[in-house]
């Protein structure tokens, strides 16, 4: 069985997730076409982070199915989902705190290395070559994000904005097809947000990615997303272009309340 529409990279079908009596996500349907910049928005408590956790395998859906790149993701562990090409950043930055900036990115290349423990233990030539390649690629990614000068600093010593960029660099190091960004603009000033928009767009083009974004900052979402999906109380209330969403009365109602 394959996903019915081939250009759809991520296909969420009728997914429901309950926590005891609380239904955090109700009959969610999401179709993200390959190569798009897709925004997922909603008021506080709408279930956005739960959707992220469902997509990355932290939670399993109570009902419904998630398809990614023609594969059914049901019951897969987070590391298996990463193997299939979904990478993420976290709302509350989760860098590897006691590693350097470079090591953070090298660690994320885990899936790209042969992981031959025997080679590592005897220190074979293949192991040393692979280590060198991993290091070079990590430096390359750091250079792209302007962090190469900080490569040997402890990751948590970086300023906030740089930590956010490092998290994106680390996610890209897994060579994903789909990048999930959980509130990338959180805590950024307007200037930084504008630069972030350029960065996200640039990453999408440069790495030929599909990007799914959860964000509170409307300027960012409306500015870069091609398709926006709005959820409220775990239910979809609208899907469409930024202009459609801005004019949608249900969205306005969800955000501003009625009367």
């Amino acid at each position: 069985m394959a996903s019915p529409v081939s250009s759809v990279l991520l296909d969420v079908r009728e997914v429901t997730r309950r926590f005891g009596g609380l239904t955090a996500v109700k009959h969610l349907n999401l179709q993200v076409a390959a190569g798009t910049l897709y925004g997922l928005i909603g008021p506080n408590g709408a279930g956005k982070t739960t959707v992220f956790n469902l997509l990355t395998g932290v939670y399993a859906p109570s009902e419904g199915d998630i398809w990614f790149d023609g594969r059914r993701m049901h019951g897969q562990r987070p590391w298996q989902i990463a193997t299939h090409g979904i990478a993420r950043t976290f709302q509350n930055i989760r860098l590897f705190a006691d590693m350097t900036v470079l090591e953070n990115v090298m660690t994320a290349q885990h899936l790209r290395t042969s992981q031959m423990i025997g080679d590592a233990i005897i220190g074979s030539r293949r192991h040393h070559r692979e280590e060198r390649e991993t290091r070079d690629r990590a430096r390359h990614l750091l250079a792209i994000f302007g962090l190469e000068a900080l490569a040997d600093e402890p990751a948590t010593s970086l300023p906030y904005g740089s930590q956010r960029r490092l998290e994106i660099a680390r996610a890209l190091a897994t060579s994903p097809k789909l990048l999930l960004l959980d509130e990338p603009a959180a805590g950024m000033n307007p200037q930084e947000s504008v630069a972030l928009m350029d960065t996200i767009r640039w990453i999408r083009d440069e790495f030929s990615l599909t990007i799914l974004l959860v964000e509170h900052n409307m300027k960012v979402v409306m500015g870069i997303c091609e398709t926006i999906h709005v959820i409220d109380h775990g239910e979809s209330i609208a899907t469409g272009s930024p202009a459609d969403i801005q004019a949608n009365p249900r969205v306005i109602e969800a955000y501003l309340g009625v009367g």
């Binding site: 590391w79 990463a82 989760r94 590897f96 705190a97 660690t107 885990h110 899936l111």
Partner: peptide, 19 residues
């Protein structure tokens, strides 16, 4: 490095593909 990632943050380690 995978072990270091586990020590540091198991959730982030899994998200980076570490079994």
């Amino acid at each position: 490095r995978a072990l270091g990632a586990i020590r540091s943050d198991e959730i982030a380690a899994e998200a980076m593909g570490v079994a």
